[in-house]
Design a protein around this nucleic acid. Sequence first.
DNA 1: GCGATCAGGT
DNA 2: CACACCTGATCGC
Length: 498
Amino acid sequence: MSSFAGRMKEYPNMSLDRFDRENLHARAYFLSHCHKDHMKGLKGPLLKRKLKFSLTVKLYCSFVTKELLLSNPKYAFWEDHIVALELESPTLITLIDEASGEREELVVTLLPAGHCPGSVMFLVEGAQGTVLYTGDFRLAKGDASRIELLHSGSRVKDIKSVYLDSTFYDPRFYQIPSRETCLHAIRGLVQDWVSRSVYHTVWLNCKAAYGYEYLFTNLGDEFHTQQGYAYSWLPCGSSASDGTPLNIISIKPSTMWFGERTQRTKVIVRTGASSYRACFSFHSSYSEIKDFLSYLQPINIYPSVIPIGRTHADVTELLKSMCRDVSSSAVIYRPLGTLKRTRPEQHTHGETLSPDHSQLSLPTILSTLFHCFVIGSVVYTRWGLCRLTSELFVDDSAKLPSPSIPLSAGQGLSQAESMLIQSEDRCQGDALTNLDAGGEESGSHTHQSEPTESQVSSDFDIPSTPDSHTPGPDDLSDLYRRLAAGEEVVTRTGSQSL
DNA sequence: GCGATCAGGT
DNA sequence: CACACCTGATCGC
């Protein structure tokens, strides 16, 4: 978790990813991505008050982050104070002291961070030198050399300080399998399971956070392509629509790492009868961070996270070796990196330089925000819809509570976000046992209870559609019919059709 | 009643 | 396999 206090030594009039305490006096705010540990104080009443009386104080972030932020009504008061910036477009920002009128000019550039949708790093250039605030990032080896705006001409810029996501800056986390490797392994497991029968289902058991969209979209696309079926709807409960129990395995994405000498890289670990952990990391590994830093050769590096079991002194000491040596009078600069253009100028709006999941298109982000979306045989759900489909499909209709949740008000977006994958292949003869009730982590998703107040009002709830209403039994059976008929009842850009 | 903080869970 | 973020208890205002 980030312990960055919000301000950089060189530019103390701007605050990044922290909005409390001394940051209340900042002249401009910057949000690198929409994770809670980077939003401390962002909905504080004092800040809200300050905005009311300010004409110049703005919050700068990416377009995607802006959408994610404003999807929560608790941050609605920011709406007129947010300035979304294009990626990789240097922007002149003037910091104004509203009391004295004093001005300070900076050029700020958003660079893709590869951490989660909308995540960026901030490159700040001004009178106090060029500094890079990484926010949280996952960049692969060599990525820094492909980011054009870290370069001036063909040479890397002279970077004074890097404020670093040092989550895994510890030799113990030497290697983390690449995103592609992890996706490949998960794809294999999913393929193996869902090909057994139509009742073999995968529950991609993600924690509530933006960041798993890379898995969602890639697996979704692939199984769509492979199956080629029209939309089908999957229950989130333990039974298929015909009452047959599902064979569900749970795959939990979680971080796994390997030391320098470790050869074997188990990307998937079986943790129970029907549960697996699959490697997936939002943060760069030690070796990826080293590659990044040794390319940039900053003069100073400030860690924003102290890995568990380490002290600030440990990390600072480790980081010293990554800094440019400017201690002696005869300054010996190690050679700075040179720009590698890996792609011709096919740069379209919003696209990034590296293969990257963090900058999904806005429609995709919106569709993930609004309840769910359906691609091929894959259903993406949020908690609320998961419950809804359970009600629709679960066998034991006598136990169904009457629906009490307005469909258009997303319930608990921050609750466990799930993805179910089920084979379209019909094959008979399998022993169709239900998810092993004794297995680790099993079953809890199959019997959803009423959402608590805090779930209903959790931070990434979707604002209610004005003319929404609670669906009655007739609405639900109509919905069921349409789903069974393969109609697309969920739009990809909003919740209106539900 | 609200926010901040911590412990404990997934 | 150590992320992100939930809930609930407690405390101060």
